[in-house]
Design a protein around this nucleic acid. Structure first.
Length: 499
RNA sequence: GGCGCCGUAGCCAAGUGGUAAGGCAGAGGUCUGCAAAACCUCGAUUCGUCGGUUCGAUUCCGACCGGCGCCUCCA
């Protein structure tokens, strides 16, 4: 078991398939449904990098669709659990896609794996590490699992029962205050929303911790016949107790020493210096950003600018810096697409080489995204310089860019539309270029055509040296969100302003 | 009280036992009718403070100051 996660470079273990999973709590609760108080899960970046390195990754992301809050919310709305959860799950997937996070290979829902959970719980009862409490619920007996606390270094903590005020008062059903619930005896409200199942040890519903273990184990065993994960990811706040409990129940059940070879814990996103949390009322959701028109590339740029194990303090200035950086990369992508030739200038090939080395070294070293991003900016600077000098960028640079884009996907999606000089003519009437309407079309889909027509008019006016009019048109377009850039070869770029 | 993290240029942020990536912002320059973009040049003798180890520490150790997280189902 490793903490302070340092994943072995892929090259050390090139063929073995890896199974990567994340425990993503509750499809019902705000967090997975678009909020990202924890970063977009680090395993999604790791997955991209491992895959780009030629390693097969199988990523499982659990959906907790049954827990106290989900049930309470469903009861409140008078709908079934499923009806309550589905919209959240869909919204979550939309936000995930918007953030360019790849879908997991499997996304099991807790309610569809209850049989697997019952099997694990029964196994734990059979092994004597679980017991049925007076309230009919089944608990895990921490005293029977000596390794408990290794991940969070709990063994070094003071384990006074009731050290925290949050425990102790009404936990009389447990033998030990630290024991956690595996199976909760059914309550009327559970039945009301369909959150109750029959089990040999009584009717009830699974506890949160067991869901993750049972789903992962079930998928791992059926697909590979193994019961240890290579990588287990999650946010730092899950280390204790959730991951600790997962380890306890999983290892007690499988008899293995570890549940995951490597634990990857992402730090939090802070807002105004404090953890983003409902408790503090400082929530920022992916949905919010989307509605503000923020480019997902900029969001990723900001996220990758800080190591995943480091807290990231979200601020408008940080976002705006990321937006600029992301736009610079997007502009280079467009430039490269137009300029790339069949061969690389030797200097360009060397730059691409340097980039590949630095990029791989950074990501192989515990996914050092900030350093990888730095390397990308160096490549872009050198590429831009060479293009300015009229040198050729070819397959080497294209491939280097492609790798970066595949793994980081941080470039702004705003694309420049380039119009060649010869295409910049417009019909004239009595020596005056025919103009499109001053007001941009309501339908944003027609916006580009409108902007391009105006750009052509401006080019015409410019040729006639009517600079005042040309400047007026540029301002008009800028007001409508379009940036015009004259190029040295006489062509123009029209860029949708992504801000 | 226990466990743990952080403090690097105006801002964000990597990193190394031998004197500090990258981005943003700013200044000057090239280019341009003017812009924008791009490129070039410029910024920490210094990495919270004070000690210690060392030939040498920002990097290791200790103390202190400041900020933050977790301590049994916020999920």
């Amino acid at each position: 078991m490793e903490r302070g996660p340092r994943v072995p470079p892929p090259s050390q273990d090139p063929v073995r398939p890896r199974k990567d999973r994340d425990s993503l709590p509750a499809a019902s609760c705000p967090r997975p449904c678009g909020r990202f108080d924890a970063r977009p899960p680090p395993q999604s970046r790791r997955g991209r990098w491992l895959e780009a390195s030629g390693i097969e990754v199988f990523h499982i992301m659990n959906l907790t669709d049954v827990d106290d809050r989900t049930i309470a919310a469903a009861v409140g709305k008078g709908v079934s659990l499923r009806e309550h959860v589905d919209p959240f799950a869909r919204a979550f997937e939309e936000d995930r896609d918007w953030l360019r996070i790849r879908p997991p290979h499997a996304q099991p829902r807790a309610t569809e794996y209850v049989d697997a959970m019952i099997e694990v719980i029964q196994g734990l009862l059979d092994r004597g590490v679980a017991y049925k409490g007076e309230d009919g619920s089944v608990y895990f007996a921490i005293a029977r699992f000596p390794a408990y606390g290794r991940l969070s270094q709990l063994d070094q903590r003071e384990l006074r029962a009731g050290a925290s005020e949050r425990v102790s008062t009404d936990e009389y059903a447990k033998a030990d205050a630290r024991d956690f619930v595996l199976w909760k005896a059914t309550r009327p409200e559970d039945e009301a929303v369909g959150a109750a199942w029959d089990a040999p040890f009584g009717r009830g519903r699974p506890g949160w911790h067991i869901e993750c273990s049972a789903m992962a184990l079930d998928l791992l065993r059926r697909r590979w016949g193994v019961d240890v994960l290579d990588i287990h990811a999650g946010a730092v706040d899950l280390i204790f107790p959730h991951h600790e409990d997962e380890i306890a129940q999983s290892c007690a059940y499988t008899g293995k020493d570890e549940f995951a070879r490597v634990w990857v814990h992402g730090e939090f996103l802070d807002l105004a210096g404090t953890k983003m949390s409902k408790r503090y009322g400082n929530i920022l959701t992916a949905r919010d950003l989307r509605e503000q028109g923020v480019d997902p590339g900029a969001v990723r740029h900001l996220l990758f600018n800080t190591h995943y194990r480091q807290k990231l303090d979200w601020s408008d200035t940080a976002l705006s810096a990321a937006r600029e950086g992301s736009a610079r990369l997007g502009a280079f992508r467009d430039r490269l697409a137009l300029a790339a030739g069949e061969t690389d200038d030797p200097e360009a090939a060397a730059a691409a080489d340097r980039f590949r080395t630095a990029f791989a070294a950074a990501l192989d070293d515990d996914l050092n995204a900030p350093e990888a991003l730095g390397a990308l900016h160096v490549l872009v600077r050198e590429g831009n310089r060479l293009l300015d000098e009229g040198r050729r960028l070819g397959p080497a640079v294209r491939a280097a860019w492609g790798l970066a884009d595949e793994v980081l996907a941080v470039a702004s999606s705003a694309r420049a539309r380039t119009v060649a000089a010869e295409a910049l003519t417009v019909a004239e009437e009595d020596g005056i270029p025919v103009r499109p309407p001053e007001v941009p079309p309501a339908d944003s889909a027609d916006g580009e055509a409108w902007a391009l027509r105006w750009a052509a008019v401006r080019a015409t006016e410019k040729r006639k040296r009517n600079f005042a009019e040309a400047d007026r048109i540029r301002d008009l377009l800028r007001g409508a969100g379009w940036e015009i850039r004259d190029r040295r070869d006489g062509a123009i770029d029209v860029v949708r302003d992504g801000r």
